[in-house]
Design a protein around this nucleic acid. Structure first.
Length: 207
DNA sequence: CTTATTTGACCACA
DNA sequence: TGTGGTCAAATAAG
């Protein structure tokens, strides 16, 4: 069990709630198989699995496959100055297909990984320069026959264009299932120390 | 034109 | 020195 700070707990709670929400969507979608479904069952199931995986990772019950560093080296000369900063800011999820998480990503690299048959792609937030959003992710195919892709996220979005994480709920269903956050806005975009303590659990008031 | 992707070079670290 | 993460020029797409 790792040390949990407030940020971890709140993010984990978010993910659990999102998973619950996605499960509700899936249930609704399954129980109305006469009409055209608004979201594929696969996507919803992936959303559920992803949310619980993130939550478990945040709570320290899963390895987030993090890199052991924390150094921010600097050299004014050339390229390649990089490195992630905190291992606890990363999590990964594995899905049969690459899913759109609702954020605007821009690919900035691709590498062949030694013990992997498939290359790894590197993405950063499109708003890295506009809004100094530090979110990056890596996507790598793991297997082909049972299609499997692993997406590893580093850092969270701080850009305002970040669409809500309930994106897998299509607009038609949104009015029915949308999570309502404290102020109608997801409190995820405070980088390190968000200061909402009591606002978060006030959702899901049936009314 | 602007914006995104491809791709090899560059760099830090083990 | 090998590996993997990032940069940026060239290229593609809108």
């Amino acid at each position: 069990m790792k040390d949990l700070d407030h940020c971890d707990c709140q993010l984990a709670l978010q993910e659990l709630l999102l998973g619950q929400d996605a499960a509700a969507n899936l249930h609704a979608s399954l129980s109305r198989e006469d009409g055209s479904p608004t979201a594929s069952h696969d996507d919803l199931a992936q959303a559920i699995a992803g949310s619980f995986a993130k939550a478990l990772c945040l709570l320290g019950y899963r390895d987030s496959s993090a890199k052991p560093d924390g150094t921010a080296s600097s050299k004014n000369d050339g390229r390649g100055r990089y490195k992630r900063r905190k291992s606890c800011d990363s999590w990964s999820e594995t899905t049969p297909a690459v899913v759109d998480d609702g954020h605007a990503w821009r690919k900035y690299g691709q590498k062949k990984i030694q013990y992997s048959d498939f290359p790894r792609s590197y993405f950063r937030c499109t708003h890295k320069s506009d809004q100094n959003c530090q979110a990056v992710k890596q996507v790598q195919q793991i297997s082909e026959d049972p299609p499997s892709h692993r997406t590893t996220y580093y850092g969270h979005h701080t850009c305002k264009n970040a669409s809500d994480p309930n994106r897998f709920i299509l607009p038609e269903e949104e009015t029915t299932f949308k999570l309502v956050y404290s102020d109608g806005e997801v409190p995820r975009n405070t980088v390190d120390k968000p200061s909402f303590q009591s606002t978060f659990p006030t959702k899901f008031q049936s009314g």
